[in-house]
Every structure is written in C-alpha cells, then in structure tokens.
C-alpha cells in the first residue's frame, strides 16, 4: 500500500545517483529518524528509500591526530572504539547518554548528524503552522507548548531544537564532515555545516540533494586535556537533553590555556560557544571565570514563556561542566 520504492545499492556512487535522480528520494541509513518521520509521523513523503545500510562506509580509522569515522558506523560502535575511549572521552559520554542501547545499535553517526528536530509541532502533520515543513506557514510552537525548544539561533520563524548529544562535543572539536556527490567530495567544518533557521527553517544544513555524508573527521584531544559532557534532564535516562554541555580545557598553573565548549538542548543547531571560549582562554580557572564564560555563551537568547528557564539553566550547566572538568 505504500508508495515508497525501496532500493539497496551495493556501491556508493549508485546510491548517490539513485537519490540525485529523484528529487523526492531519500537516503535510508539506520532508519531511526527517517522511518519515524516517513512512516509513523508521516510528515515527510519520500518517493524512494535508498538503503545505504550495507555500503562499505563503516568503521573508525586513526589518521595521526584525527579520527576518521565512516558515516554508517553505529553510535554503539563509535562509543566502543578504543581511541574514542582514550582520546575523545567526552564523545563517548555523549554517545552513551543518548537514546537507548537498542537505538544506538541502529543509529549511525551520519544519521545522528542529520537527525531532525523533536519539535512535536514539526512532527504532527495535523499542525498547519510549521515553517520548517511549509515555509511561510507560521510557527505553532512559539504560541504553543514549548519546553524542549531552542533559545539560541532561534527566532520568530522557528524555535525547533537540534537534539543531538553527539554533535555537542563534535562541534566543540571542530569536526569536519566529508560529503560525496556526483561532482566529487568536499569537506565542511561541522560549525559551518548547519544553518540557523532565519527565514528558511526548512533549510537545515549545506547538504545538496543527493549529497551523501560519507565520513566525519574528528581531531583528537591533545594529551593532558580534560573533557566532559553533562546532560541535564528530568528523567534519569532515555530522554533528550533539556540542556547539555561539552567542555574540553587545558589548565596550566591555574590558568586556562585552551578551551572548547559545545552546547546542547539550547540551539537550533549544535551550538559552539565561541564567546565562552574567548572568555576562558587566559583566565584563571575559577568560579568567576566560569560564570563569565556562561554569561558570554548565552547572550541574546530568543525565548518564549516555556523556554525562558533555559537561559539560567544553560548558564549553570556550563558552569557545572567547567567546574567538573577542572576539578
């Protein structure tokens, strides 16, 4: 009864062609986002699933001081990687604090980057006002029940949150995304991969139709760096972040010499807290510095009544992770 074609190419270039040739075709990897949206919530209507699940794009390779992660590596596989354990511990923490083991056995790294917002107004086709689904139709969430929504990168057109945990440390690490299409490959820094909604919330990233995420390249933390990921939520497990933060810092003689901060649960895109990093570097590793960094990170938030509490909570989340990793 479905009108969705299913194809499973065995090589990457066929996969790219099969999507590129049909404007309504979609890549299908782990399925945890795509099948949910297409078959259950029914807010996307692909004509064709191009199942890339068995393409040879799986595994983790150490390349000097970088890790090259093939896009179909699952969240569980990446979390188990020995280099991730030793040199990117906060990536492992973020992975294991996300979803459930079942979903982590299915969900891929590429798919995690491309996961769609959990906004219930986006995910309910009975809601007419959703600029992300239908540009110009409005935003029901802004006037509605908004709690698990964004305060950074948000605006009157859209407050939909990017709910990934994994992307929070990745964006902090200046990870890069390798993309492939018929024209060849290109590399895009994760910090430039996502687009904040502006007046086109339907455009979420720089991917062209038919372009495939093939790898994610993650620099390793320099030896001696302390890192951590904190996830704040009402339920102890199996819930998206209300707020979260990833931090990696180096401290010498009580002074912060390097800092990377990513934020989750607050942004329409995985959020890099550049301003906080600027406050931290060169400053003494103390409570005052952390609070100043937090204030710098959450500047000019866009809030609605349901999300206003996140402004202070996000700041405290930043302070807490900085205190934790420097302890």
């Amino acid at each position: 009864m479905s009108d969705i074609e299913y194809v499973r190419p065995t090589d990457t270039s066929s996969a790219v062609t099969l999507v590129a040739e049909d404007p309504d075709a979609a890549f299908l990897a782990g399925g945890t986002t795509e099948l949910d949206l297409a078959l259950k919530d029914r807010v996307i209507r692909p004509s064709r699933f191009v199942d890339i699940g068995r393409l040879p794009l799986r595994g983790v390779t150490r390349e000097g001081d970088r890790l090259r992660v093939a896009a179909l590596t699952t969240m569980e596989e990446l979390a188990a990687d020995p280099t991730v354990r030793s040199r990117l511990p906060f990536v492992r923490e973020a992975l294991l604090l996300g979803a459930s083991t079942q979903l982590r056995n299915m969900a891929t790294i590429g798919g995690n980057l491309l996961q769609r917002t959990r906004c219930r107004y986006f995910r309910d086709p009975a809601v007419h006002a959703c600029n992300k689904r239908e540009p110009g139709s409005g935003c029901a969430a802004i006037e509605g029940v908004a709690r698990m929504h964004a305060i950074l990168g948000a605006g009157p057109s859209c407050i939909a949150l990017h709910a990934s945990d994994l992307c929070v440390p990745l964006v902090a690490m200046d990870a890069e995304v390798e993309l492939l299409d018929a024209d060849g490959t290109r590399r895009v820094p994760l910090t430039e991969f996502y687009r904040t909604p502006g007046d086109r919330p339907d455009v979420e990233n720089v991917l062209r139709h038919g372009e495939l995420v093939t790898h994610v390249v993650v620099p390793l933390l320099p030896a001696g760096t302390r890192s951590g990921y904190i996830k704040v939520r009402d339920r102890q497990s199996y819930e998206f972040a209300t707020t979260s933060a990833a931090a990696a810092v180096q401290v010498e003689d009580g002074t912060i010499t390097a800092a990377r901060i990513g934020l989750g649960g607050v942004g329409t895109v995985p959020w890099r807290a550049w301003e906080a990093e600027r406050v931290l570097v060169g400053a003494p590793a103390n409570e005052r510095t952390y609070r100043a960094a937090a204030e710098a990170a959450i500047r000019d938030p866009f809030t609605v009544p349901g999300t206003a509490f996140k402004v202070e909570l996000a700041k405290r989340t930043i302070v807490r992770i900085l205190r934790t990793v420097t302890a």
Binding site: G144, V145, S237, Y238, F240
Partner: peptide, 21 residues
C-alpha cells in the same frame, strides 16, 4: 496546546514515564 487543545506531548518520547534508572 493552549490554542488548539492538542496534546502537545502525546508520544512516549515526549510524555515521560519513569524508566528503570
């Protein structure tokens, strides 16, 4: 929803019941 009365969190991902942890 205060405007149209829909249950705005009517899924198990949004309406939170206790988990084992």
């Amino acid at each position: 929803d205060p405007n149209d009365g829909r249950v705005a969190n009517g899924t198990f991902g949004d309406y939170l019941v206790p988990v084992n942890a």
